[in-house]
Amino acid sequence: MAAVTAAQATATAGETIATDGAALPLIEDPAAVTPKDARELSRRFLGRLAVLEEGTHEHQYVRNTLIEMNLSLVRYASSRFRTRGDSVEDVVQVGTIGLIKAIDRFEVSREVEFTTFAVPYIVGEIKRFFRDTSWAVHVPRRLQEARVELAKATDELRSRLGRTPTTRELSELMSLSEEEVIEARKAANCYQSASLDAALTSESDSGDTVLADRLGEEDPSLELVDDFNSLAPLIASLDERDRRIIHMRFVEELTQAQIAARLDVSQMHVSRLISRIIKRLRKGLLEPGVA
């Protein structure tokens, strides 16, 4: 199918959703829009999505069009995991969930390119999928996470001490009991992994290639961990209603309309409340000691 440019989409499809003097093109086949033009059109569609009321026909059209136009981002991110052995379609479907979350959470006021914002969501969702499905034997999430921390602590102490660390040394660094460290070690045996030095061969490869050469870049979203830890006390300082609103919006992922129905207030009032709460949290992060 031939790609559709932004100009063609506007010229051939006509205009729709003409409110406040602004209009968007009616794109009959968003998936055929080229990645370059999808970026330009996404700016316009995201700006419109921010002011449309959730649940309306216009909101649904703009949101669905954004998803289909940006599926190339999902395919690009998914290609980094092509050596994992899972179905490409499964990985793309999982990545699409990340794309949808990015669209729903994007704020035009941030002045950040949508692609820059969306890729960590897509990659994060795919990595979560592999983390949850790559275990030979199912173990609790607590132990899955402990295995990762154990590996990091072991590498750090081995580098520092020049030898394999003891269970007691690991427990002190990880702030866990020795029993919990032993439990994490047992859980690690349930995970099937390949050596980073394992040779990869294919007809297209020239020379020796190892698994480490195929790994992706560092995930920039890991830098958000510190922000999450800093947010915890700020959220705890909110009153009960504000905490409930934050939980419904960002944990239960309810729409503003659904939150309004639960609180028996207008959607506009919910929008103002969320903006006020986020502004307070942002100020607390940027200006420590100011709540």
Rank of each mutant, 00 (worst) to 15 (best):
E169H: 09
D227F: 00
L222T: 08
L176W: 15
E253W: 09
L211C: 02
L254R: 12
L222Y: 10
T209L: 09
R168A: 13
L176N: 00
A199C: 00
D264I: 09
Q258V: 01
D226A: 15
R168E: 08
L176R: 12
A261L: 03
F250K: 04
R168T: 11
T167S: 07
S221N: 02
E252T: 05
A236V: 04
I182R: 15
S193R: 14
T167E: 07
R160F: 05
L254Q: 13
S177W: 00
L196I: 06
D205S: 12
T166W: 03
F250N: 06
R214P: 06
T201C: 01
D227M: 13
S175Q: 11
S177R: 07
L263G: 05
E179K: 14
S171W: 07
D205Q: 10
P220W: 01
S175G: 07
L224Y: 11
R163W: 06
I246D: 03
S193T: 10
S237A: 15
I245P: 02
A188L: 08
A184M: 03
M174N: 02
V251K: 11
M174E: 02
V251I: 12
M248P: 02
A198M: 11
S195V: 07
L263Q: 08
D205K: 09
D227Q: 14
E172A: 10
I235W: 03
E223Q: 13
D208Q: 14
L170E: 01
D226M: 09
M248C: 03
Q256Y: 15
D242Q: 13
A212S: 14
S230M: 11
S159Q: 12
Q267D: 09
E217F: 10
M174I: 00
A187E: 01
R160A: 13
L222V: 03
A198L: 10
E183A: 15
R158W: 00
R168P: 04
R214C: 04
T164G: 03
I245S: 03
R241P: 01
S230Y: 09
E218T: 05
S237F: 01
E223A: 15
L173T: 07
L176T: 02
A232P: 02
L254P: 04
A199G: 04
R185Y: 08
I246F: 12
E253Q: 12
Y191P: 06
R214E: 00
A194T: 01
Y191R: 12
S221E: 07
A198C: 04
R241C: 01
S171V: 00
D226W: 04
S204D: 06
I246P: 01
A184G: 06
F228K: 11
A236T: 09
T209H: 15
N229K: 14
S177H: 02
A232S: 11
